[in-house]
Amino acid sequence: MDQQQYQQGQARPILSDEDLAYTVLADLKRVVREYATAATEANCQQIRQLFTNLMNSTLQMQGNLYNLMLQHNMYDTSSPALRQEVDKQLKMNQQTAQKTQQFLQQQHLGGYASHQYQAPQQQLHQQQNPGVNPYFM
C-alpha cells in the first residue's frame, strides 16, 4: 500500500504546478522585503549596495514568475476599482495636498511646496480635457 502510494507520487507529484510556483513566489516576496530592510539598516556603503542589488534582482524574478503564473491562469487579478472610488481618492488626496501646501506656506516654505504640488492639480484639468497631457502644459 505504502509502496503503491509512493509510486503514484512519483508519477503525479503531490503538489500541483500552481502550488509549487506559489510557494516560490511567496518566498520571493518575503525575501524582497528582507533585502529592503537589510539595505536600510546597513552601515557600510558596499553592503547597502549589495542588499539593494539583490533586492532588485529578486524583485525581477518575482515579477517574471508572477507573469508566468498569470499566463497559465494561476492568478485572478483583483477586479478594477470603480470610477467613483478613483474620483473620490483623487479628490480627497488633492485636498490633502492643498492643505499641506498651505501648511508649508505658513512655514515660509511655499515656493518649494507649490512646485511640488503642481502635478496633482493639473491632473484635474486632464479629466476635463482628456486629450491634453498635463505634464507638457
Partner: peptide, 11 residues
C-alpha cells in the same frame, strides 16, 4: 557590523 553580519547570514 554585528547587524549586517546577521542580515548576510539570514539572506
Amino acid at each position: 557590523t554585528a547587524k549586517e553580519l546577521e542580515y548576510l547570514a539570514d539572506s
